[in-house]
Design a protein around this nucleic acid. Sequence first.
DNA 1: TATTGTTATACTCTATAACTATA
DNA 2: TATAGTTATAGAGTATAACAATA
Lengths: 141, 141
Amino acid sequence: MIKDPVKDLPGYALRRVSAALMSRLAARLARLDLRPAEATVLLVIAANPGVTQSEIGRFLGIVSANMAPLAARLAERDLIIRQAVDGRSQGLTLSEAGRRTAQRARSIMDDLEAELLARIPKADCAAFMRVLHALANNKGA
Amino acid sequence: MIKDPVKDLPGYALRRVSAALMSRLAARLARLDLRPAEATVLLVIAANPGVTQSEIGRFLGIVSANMAPLAARLAERDLIIRQAVDGRSQGLTLSEAGRRTAQRARSIMDDLEAELLARIPKADCAAFMRVLHALANNKGA
DNA sequence: TATTGTTATACTCTATAACTATA
DNA sequence: TATAGTTATAGAGTATAACAATA
């Protein structure tokens, strides 16, 4: 058997768990022909009608160069509608099809989260969420 | 301010935290001209001299098609030595330079892990590690 | 000057398919 | 037949640089 030099590194464990989760999420969202980043953007637009690309990008940590083709693809599929709010910004809203797709994506993500929670020992769940939020809100070193 | 539709999803928080960690790790390992996957492979070889590519791949979750160029690059830089153990397998060992590089990579990873632990509330640390190990060892759903 | 959005480009990780050689 | 290793290729996320149009 192989000796494991990284087993006790929480960062490595975090990376492996995250990768496995992402892989599962991507597989399920593929049924909607959505990638994880696209699904997340749909949810943000659903919760914030009229939000602009740059606002979404800052919020989700997606640089504008990558938001552009992502939003273009959603618009091309008629899942979102772009309306100019001033000369350079465009507010994004879900179309009817976009609302349906966003709901299904939300359902897929909720299912996966429920499965994740089911694998966490009940007694440790609250502490786990506290730590995740602490790390997420304090990203610098 | 933007409403956050994914804040309470532990899977999403996990993904963001992992991505931020990986970005920091990649930046620091770049000083050694190593990518995160390469550094991890070096550590596994250091802990298991003579291990084969396929063993490392199974252990770290790297498919053989991706192990091949990774190992080739490490060998080309004279960080690892390949010695045939049978006609189709080659045992991997660290060279002297590889040992030095692996030590420095280990030091970088340990520093980062220490910084990560410092940001975790002491009282929640044990529970956090328990959950990570539970999720890592139970990857299917 | 700063910001929005865009294009082009590149890097890393991951994955599958097809192949050779060996067990 | 199964395994080790390789090559080619592709998809997804992320990043920087350069640019046009607008504030």
